[in-house]
Design a protein around this nucleic acid. Sequence first.
DNA 1: CACTTGACCTGTCCGC
DNA 2: TGCGGACAGGTCAAGT
Length: 288
Amino acid sequence: MPELPEVETVRRGLSQLIIGKVVSGEVHDTEKGFPNAAHDVQQFLIGASVTEVRRRAKVLMIDLSTDYSLLIHLKMTGQLVFVGETRFGAGHPNDSLVNELPDKSTRVTLTFEDGTKLFFNDQRKFGWMRLMPTIEIPNISFMQKVGPEPLSADFTAKDFIQRLARRPKTNIKAALLDQSVVAGIGNIYADESLWGAKIHPTRLVSSLTEAEMTLLYTEVRAVMNLSVEKGGSSNSTYVNAEGKKGSYMDFARVFRREGLACPRCGATIEKLRVAGRGTHICPVCQAI
DNA sequence: CACTTGACCTGTCCGC
DNA sequence: TGCGGACAGGTCAAGT
């Protein structure tokens, strides 16, 4: 899925596109994609207007005037695509989506009173959308355990080091992917950050020096900030709220670049398996 | 308890 | 061209 930069890109897009819109009675869903009781949908979604679009870690929250929210996790292949038939001109990438959506991956379709639509698509069906009272969001188990936002101004290197210290016997890649340590890092940005800090992904957290962890903190933030700026990374399924792809992969230094030259030292990038995930490294820069 | 591994799904790509 | 297996940006439950 979409990691923090991709979800943030979707959030920014949706903020521009759907705040103030009113959900009409035309809501289509599948049991898997939208498992809320029908009476909740009727009472708290239909007729509600969108007041805010928020993000915490990789979870999106669409707040409604009924004091309910739609919570959405895109997991690996989820998309939230807004289609406004009159909003985009001919030739705009969104234009073709008017006729392409819904498709077989569409799990939920929301229609607004002005005729525009929001599609929740998910090829692999790992993602979810859930309607719940806004005030109860902080109580769900994920929100209780999720770590700090890595790009927030008050997240410091000291915080990062202290939180890593809670997982001393695991490898650093698994620790970065652990959402209770820091929120929002996924497979792409874990690899990119470790390359930036010249740390081998199988190194145990307890073996890292303070200087290495401080550098890793800087790299995590730099990589995430760059990706947010570039609209995230796109493989085959990720698109933003307007159905467009992000360009971070043009800037990736190791992720999915196995067999190519390391941009720093020229050695050949390798792919291995760490923490059950495909992992990309420069064997020279990131020697154990 | 801390940590690792499978399961959840569908689609695509790669080797035989 | 067909078929089997591995793999894909995440998270949780079950296993050691």
